[in-house]
Design a binder for these strands. Structure first.
Lengths: 231, 231
DNA sequence: CCATCTGCTGACAGTTTATGGCAGCAGCGT
DNA sequence: ACGCTGCTGCCATAAACTGTCAGCAGATGG
């Protein structure tokens, strides 16, 4: 079985992803235990398969943030779930994430056999009407801050209309029926606080990471809740 | 590049999916232009990759309904969209589809690098609280009827509590905030009708397919709506 | 401008892997 | 019992992958 090669390609991708800086082909060749010539061929193979690898002479290789999924099997219902879920994201999430949902759906549809693509296009499963987006702030930036564990400076107006400024450590974002809610540790109150995204007047992403891990904050926050959120 | 083999495997899968009945290895070998011995090896490769192919001596091969996705690249945001979408399905859909959503999510998580799996597990993106399921009827059976374009016999109680029996041609299922709605052509009224799934008292799937194509019904139904559902 | 690092491609020989044909065993249906 | 079929082992041949060598092009630093 040609399992060796495809595994090596996946290893190569992961290795490439570990580095943030550009990596030279020589290093990659050593780490994957292969000659430089073969490495170039492997890179070409990955690019042919759609991997977003960029190589510049004199610099090295950089993998754009993203992930390669190996070939996998989905049942009919799992595929329906993915389609319905992406469709919901495309309607309910903020524009940028919604676009990503539509793109993911299109990618999956593109590789499906024709009769199955019809199933996706014909869209037998719907979700509710499209949400009006009332956020002033950029919700994508919030997601980015969560991913990078960066401090956010908020200009926020609460339900009584009182405006405040605070630095918070964002670790979660809740998509509810009518609102989106940022979950964060508030430096001002020294406690967990929720912020409706439509009440965020302005927002700035700090350069520095907050001093704790996102997952730990998440766990502690859950313990403060009466109703635990099971997966 | 070893593009020949993997393409051949995908072709084999599609060929296998075209047949509903069991297919003998000899036929498959001829259609894919390969020897019988190699075909057995290819089948083994596909099974090793997770394809749900069943072979019985004296019968042939059958592919369980489902689909193999070739290796594909997703951006960080597309992956977040898939995760959030699956999570919504796992909460908002009826139990069976919800389970499929959770399974799909688990499959994707299983093949992701460790640090990314953490992103999925730590679940920075939430959806609203879990819905109480108030359906008496089996919504999975409705989805199945839609897929197979089969006639449904409904025992239905409307908002005034009037109970009726009717045969309908189901072609769509809408997931709204608080209810799920079956879209169908009603033989009784000779028109399109909507049925809330929580008002379906009882239900039976007929053996015969209805005489029109699901996609055509869907298209005609959309034309009767004031608000066209884009995408 | 030169030197150096790096990506990238071609050619060729050695090695590995895949393939096809053959034989044989086991399970299923008639 | 018989035929059909899935499945595995063996082996010679064909195809591919790999490594070494060579050379060209772009980027960076001096």
């Amino acid at each position: 079985m040609p399992v060796a090669r495809s595994e090596r390609l996946l290893t190569l991708l992961q290795t490439l992803r570990r580095y943030r800086r550009p990596v030279t082909g020589t290093v990659l060749a050593q780490e994957t235990g292969v000659s430089l010539r073969t490495l170039y061929r492997d890179i070409a193979s990955l690019q042919a398969q759609g991997a977003m690898i960029e190589g510049e002479a004199g610099i090295g290789y950089v993998l754009k943030p993203g992930f390669m999924l190996p070939p996998m099997m989905f049942s009919e219902e799992e595929l329906e779930a993915l389609v319905l879920g992406s469709r919901w994201v495309a309607r309910a999430a903020e524009p940028r994430l919604a676009g990503a949902g539509a793109d993911a759906l299109a990618k999956i549809a593109a590789v499906l056999p024709a009769d199955m693509r019809e199933m996706i296009d014909s869209a037998a499963l719907f979700v509710g009407p499209k949400r009006r987006d009332e956020d002033k702030a950029d919700v994508s930036a919030i997601r980015r801050a969560i991913r990078l564990e960066r401090i956010l400076e908020l200009h926020y107006g609460d339900e009584q209309g009182r405006i405040s400024r605070r630095r918070v450590w964002p670790f979660g974002l809740g998509y509810y029926e009518h609102v989106r809610v940022l979950m964060a540790w508030c430096e001002l109150r020294q406690d967990f606080r929720h912020f409706r995204t439509d009440r965020i007047i302005d927002m700035a992403l700090h350069e520095v990471r907050y001093p704790r891990r996102r997952t730990v904050l998440l766990k502690e926050w859950r313990e403060t809740q009466d109703v635990p959120m099971e997966n």
